[in-house]
């Protein structure tokens, strides 16, 4: 019977957006902010609500950094701040005063690819390309983390220096989703690149 698939609606009407707002929201006062992006000093006057991700994409038109989820769940927005990888969707631009930011545009250009970008091309470590800048930025920092001896979830001995292994790389890259499913090739690209490192 269709009737068994019922919805339990107790009240006749409901109102969405539960928080009423008697007074219209005040306009956000713009704030001045300065940081360095890919070596270039940048100064912005910006709505404090603007994330670093939106500042890069919408203000600076550096659209290589991607918005996949805007909630820290996919890693497409990964950039390097002071050499460390972060989700640029979960930090405000105003929180990055003085920061040194590196985006995918700062690694290489189509004419002069960064060796890791070249390895991604050679190993076909991407398909639709939307997660790719995040994967590449993430991998660059991830390799530094391994080199710095930072352990991971799969590091067997916490008191030994972290070492390169397939499992280590796959675990450490897990904050970057790729729905096209290029993981197997992304690993090979990272391995190819890392193998060339001095």
């Amino acid at each position: 019977m269709a009737g068994t698939a019922a919805v339990a609606v107790t009240s006749l009407t409901m109102i969405s957006q539960a928080q009423p707002n008697a007074n219209p929201a005040p306009a956000a006062a713009l704030m001045k902010i300065a940081f360095t992006v890919n070596g270039t000093p940048r100064a912005l006057e910006i709505d404090p609500r603007t994330t670093l991700l939106d500042a890069l994409r919408e203000e600076l038109h550096l659209t290589g950094t991607k918005k996949g989820c805007d909630h820290g769940q996919c890693g497409a927005c990964t950039v390097l701040v002071g050499g460390r990888r972060i989700n640029s969707c979960l930090t405000l631009a105003v929180m990055q005063q003085g920061a040194e930011i590196t985006t995918i545009e700062g690694l290489g250009t189509p004419e002069q690819l960064h060796p890791l970008q070249a390895a991604f091309v050679r190993c076909d470590g991407y398909q639709c390309g939307y997660c790719t800048p995040g994967q590449i930025c993430s991998a660059v920092a991830m390799l530094s983390e391994v080199q710095a001896g930072i352990p991971s979830h799969v590091t067997a001995d916490l008191n030994a220096p972290a070492a390169w292994s397939e499992a280590e790389v796959r675990e450490r890259m897990s904050g970057n989703l790729c729905r096209c499913g290029a993981y197997s090739n992304i690993f090979e690209a990272i391995q190819t690149f890392a193998g060339k490192r001095p």
Binding site: R85, I86, N87, T91, S138, L158, G175
Partner: peptide, 19 residues
Amino acid sequence: YGVLARALLAGASGQLRNM
């Protein structure tokens, strides 16, 4: 405090743990 290191490393992602 290995339990703490392990718990931290089991959480979130590399990016999120950096933040």
